[in-house]
């Protein structure tokens, strides 16, 4: 998407990126500076409409004089900074981060850019051995902090676990969760202010959870679906999409996207209706839309069944 600065830049800073002298507005992050230069900088936990949490560490760059690499998504440019985005250290770290993630999380729905980065950095997640069998129950939800069974090392531990199906609007497949914190942010102070989910546990057992891992119907969730809107890996997914995928009928090539305005209230949120076989299969909103910034409410996100209702009939109910 296009780069946009909310506040007018006060002055321009001069920094060096990969040998090129460039000018960036004061307050810009290194990621913004890199994108301004057209550099494809991988990001996973970063999203334009959320405050950077700099946890995935795939966007790291090397700043001369710094002891360790810095996350470009949150580090602000400073006058005279000398930045390397493709040094041996940067490539090695990005490669390892992608390998660590891919060896522990199902990234198969994470979008084509992730595969592109995996290829570019020659990530080989299988180096850590074959994946351990998935947990068959909710043991990850009950993990005690600071305790784990010592591994034998022949298989690589993963976060694979059963899908959480507890309501009709969306599913939670935490086998795909890279713990980017985006859903927590969207549920909390960045968008919805509902705070139904947070990170619980610690270490490899850290997980997105409601209190005591209760199901969504027993939680504070209001089904705005803003967590789905920001999830980068398909861990959170419309139930309609999930069902079609389970039946092997999900086919994005056959889908159209129609932009419209939500019919419910007067705010004027833009909706993007994803339609397959003349059925609405999911609803999104553009990240750069002035009003929504990609976020919707339960009605705009899930209240579309009436569209399918013909002849006053029951089909859509």
């Amino acid at each position: 998407m296009s780069l946009s600065f909310v506040a007018p830049p006060r002055r321009l800073l001069t920094i060096t990126i990969d040998g090129r002298t460039v000018k960036v507005p004061e307050g810009a992050t290194l990621l913004e500076a890199c994108r301004q230069q057209g550099l494809d900088t991988p990001t996973l936990c970063y999203l334009e409409n959320l405050a950077p949490v700099n946890v995935c560490r795939v966007c790291v760059v090397e700043v001369e004089g710094a002891r360790v690499l810095v996350p470009s998504c949150s580090r602000k440019a400073e006058e005279g900074m000398v930045v390397h985005t493709d040094s041996e250290r940067v490539r090695a770290s990005r490669r390892s981060v992608l390998e660590l993630l891919a060896s522990s999380v199902d990234l198969s729905l994470a979008g084509p850019e992730v595969k592109r980065w995996m290829n570019r950095y020659r990530a080989e997640p299988e180096r850590f051995g074959p994946a351990a069998p998935a947990a068959e129950d909710d043991r990850r939800d009950r993990a005690r902090p600071g305790e784990h069974h010592a591994p034998e090392g022949q298989v690589a531990a993963t976060v694979a676990q059963p899908v959480k199906l507890d309501n009709e609007t969306y599913i939670r497949d935490y086998s795909r969760c890279i713990l980017c914190y985006k859903c927590v942010e969207a549920c909390g102070s960045e968008a919805q202010n509902t705070f139904a989910i947070a990170v619980a546990g610690r270490g490899f057992e850290a997980r997105i959870s409601t209190e005591f891992a209760v199901g969504l119907p027993d939680s504070a969730c209001v089904y705005c679906g803003n967590c789905i809107g920001v999830c980068p890996t398909g861990a959170l997914m419309f139930k309609s999409e999930y069902d079609l995928r389970q039946k092997g009928r999900w086919d994005e090539a056959r889908q159209t996207v129609t932009t419209t305005i939500c019919p419910y209230c007067g705010v004027g949120c833009n909706l993007e209706l994803h339609v397959q076989d003349n059925e609405i299969v999911k609803v999104t909103s553009p990240l750069d839309h002035d009003i929504t910034r990609g976020h919707l409410c339960v009605k705009g996100r899930f209240g579309y069944q009436f569209v399918q209702s013909r002849n006053g009939g029951d089909e859509g109910r």
Binding site: C56, S93, V97, L100, L101, I178, L179, G201, R202, A206
Partner: peptide, 15 residues
């Protein structure tokens, strides 16, 4: 055991 689990290098790297 003591990793907070926030960032990928430490959360998965220690495993």
């Amino acid at each position: 055991d003591e990793s907070c689990g926030q960032c990928v290098p430490c959360r998965v790297g220690t495993v």
